[in-house]
Structures are given as structure tokens and as C-alpha cells.
């Protein structure tokens, strides 16, 4: 194969990896925000992505314009996220991490169960935001919607960063994540902070779901695998580190795409889980983990 074709092939794999990776990154980011605020590993994170896509599909099918439908979907996901915290996580206050994990797993099964009753069990699509004509770059092609996904993910990261660094509320979230007791002592309402974190996470997930549905389609059960993959991305980047989560997610997407392209597509879905194990065996802190692995 000549150089140009090799290059085109490489780029094609990279585009694929970055698009999928951006979604993993957003799921991982959602995981991290909740984990930092409350120590909860939220296995229902993937359901927010599902809700984003499915609610937008359902509402826009009812004749509501797409942007409005998307807004409604995000609001609804935030509502579900807040409800998850107030109705399921908070009442179990003081429970062991195992119990909290199982509660979120129960929540994800519940949300999925309700979704298949409210919506249906079919796959659905959304129209692409800017048409379906792919851009050609050095022989590789990329859909306009992929740029939306990557751009959207980038925008979310920038906005979040500004929120954490520039606003009082954001700083309070960081303070509560660093040391809950100290935060409470200086007058930060940690309960509100946790609810806020669940809401933000849900919003991020829903936006990811809306952005990616025109490419990947959606149905009531797309959440489970996304949650596992996003979670692997978060582990890879270092549990509890937002930037690490984003990098871990992107890296996972890229490794999957290159693995499928250059090696074999048979074990593509296994890559994420091999990575989890490798991270655990070699460097439990991940790429950009926190100082301490133990969280007592």
C-alpha cells in the first residue's frame, strides 16, 4: 500500500476512535463528578445517555422542534439524576460502597425497565444536525455529526473547567470533593453539592446521548455497555480525576478503533476490560490518578 493510502487508513481509524472516544469521555466525566462528590460509583450513568437520545426522539416525534426537544431531554435527565440522589442514594446514607454500587445498578435496571414501557424496544434515529455529506480529509472521511460530537465534548470540558475554577459554587464542589468534613465546617451545604453533582452528571450524559444518536442510533438498552466502557475510560485515566477521565475515554476509543482496524475486530469489545485489568495490576491510580488509591 502506498503512503497516501496508509495515511488515509490511519486517519480514518483515528476519526472513528475520536468520535466514539468522545462519548466514552463524557460518560467517564459524568462518573468522575459523582464519584468525587459522593464516593458513589454510579452504574446508572449510561442510562442518562440513553435518556438524552430516547427522550429527544420521542419528543421531536411529537412535533416539537429538535432544539426544544433536546432541551427537554436534558432537563428530564437532570430531574432523574436529582431524583436518583435524593430518593435512592441519600436515604442509604452511611451504607457501604458495595451497597451503593448495587443501588445504582438497581436504578439502572429500573430506568431501563421504565424506558421500555414508556418508549418501546425499537431502535430510533435522529436527523444529523448539519447534514450527512462527509468531509474528505487526506482520503479519510468524517461526518459533520462527528465534529458536533467532538466539539460538544470539548465545549462541555471547557464550560466545566470554567465552572470549577471561576465560580464560587464550582469551588465549593471541589472543596467538598477534597474533604467533605472540612467543607461542611466552613459552611458548604454538602448535600446540595452532591445533588448538584448528580444533576451535572446527568446533563453531561444526556447531551452526549443527543449528540451521538444521529450517528449511532439509540434504544432503551444502549446504556449498559456505554456505562461499562465509560467506566473503563475513567479507570484508565485515574478514578476521580476529571481530566484523566476525558483522556482515558478518548484513549479507549482510539485503542478500540486502531485495534479493530489493524489487529482484529473479534475482541474489540474486550479491549476496554483488558485495560481495566492492566490498570489494576500495573498502576491502580491510572494515568492521572489521585495521590491515594484508598478512600476510607
Amino acid at each position: 500500500m502506498d503512503g497516501f493510502a496508509t495515511m488515509a487508513e490511519f486517519l480514518q481509524f483515528a476519526f472513528s476512535g475520536l468520535t466514539v472516544g468522545a462519548v466514552y469521555a463524557l460518560v467517564a466525566l459524568g462518573f468522575t463528578i459523582i464519584y468525587n462528590a459522593s464516593d458513589v460509583v454510579n452504574f446508572a450513568q449510561g442510562e442518562f445517555v440513553m435518556l438524552g437520545g430516547m427522550v429527544t426522539v420521542a419528543v421531536s416525534a411529537a412535533g416539537i422542534p429538535l432544539p426544544l426537544a433536546a432541551l427537554f431531554a436534558v432537563a428530564l435527565a437532570v430531574g432523574v439524576g436529582v431524583a436518583l440522589h435524593r430518593l435512592a442514594i441519600e436515604p442509604a446514607h452511611g451504607a457501604s460502597p458495595v451497597v451503593l454500587i448495587i443501588i445504582t445498578i438497581g436504578a439502572s435496571i429500573f430506568i431501563r425497565g421504565v424506558a421500555q414501557i414508556v418508549f418501546d424496544r425499537q431502535f430510533h434515529k435522529l436527523p444529523s444536525f448539519s447534514g450527512d455529506a462527509p468531509f474528505v480529509l487526506f482520503g479519510a472521511t468524517i461526518l459533520p455529526q462527528s465534529l458536533w460530537v467532538m466539539g460538544g465534548a470539548g465545549a462541555i470540558v471547557v464550560v466545566l473547567h470554567a465552572f470549577f475554577e471561576r465560580t464560587i459554587l464550582g469551588k465549593a464542589v471541589l472543596a467538598a470533593a477534597a474533604n467533605r468534613l472540612a467543607a461542611r465546617l466552613v459552611g458548604i451545604d454538602t448535600r446540595l453539592i452532591m445533588t448538584l453533582s448528580f444533576g451535572i452528571s446527568a446533563a453531561i450524559g444526556a447531551v452526549a446521548g443527543i449528540l451521538v444518536t444521529p450517528i449511532t442510533l439509540t434504544s432503551y438498552n444502549v446504556g449498559t455497555l456505554l456505562a461499562l466502557k465509560g467506566f473503563a475510560g475513567g479507570m484508565l485515566g485515574g478514578m476521580g480525576n476529571p481530566l484523566g477521565a476525558v483522556l482515558g475515554g478518548l484513549l479507549l476509543g482510539l485503542v478500540e478503533a486502531f485495534g479493530a482496524g489493524y489487529l482484529s475486530s473479534t475482541y474489540k469489545d474486550g479491549i476496554a476490560f483488558v485495560m481495566i485489568l492492566v490498570v489494576l495490576f500495573v498502576s491502580p491510580r491510572g494515568l492521572l490518578g489521585r495521590r491515594s488509591v484508598e478512600r476510607v
Partner: peptide, 15 residues
């Protein structure tokens, strides 16, 4: 080539 039942992008295999 092959793809997983829940895969969302098959461009690497198709390439």
C-alpha cells in the same frame, strides 16, 4: 471482518 452486537461505528472494519 466482524463487529459487536452493540457497536456504534464500523468504519475501521469497513476501511
Amino acid at each position: 471482518e466482524s463487529y459487536g452486537a452493540q457497536d456504534s461505528d464500523m468504519t475501521p472494519q469497513l476501511t
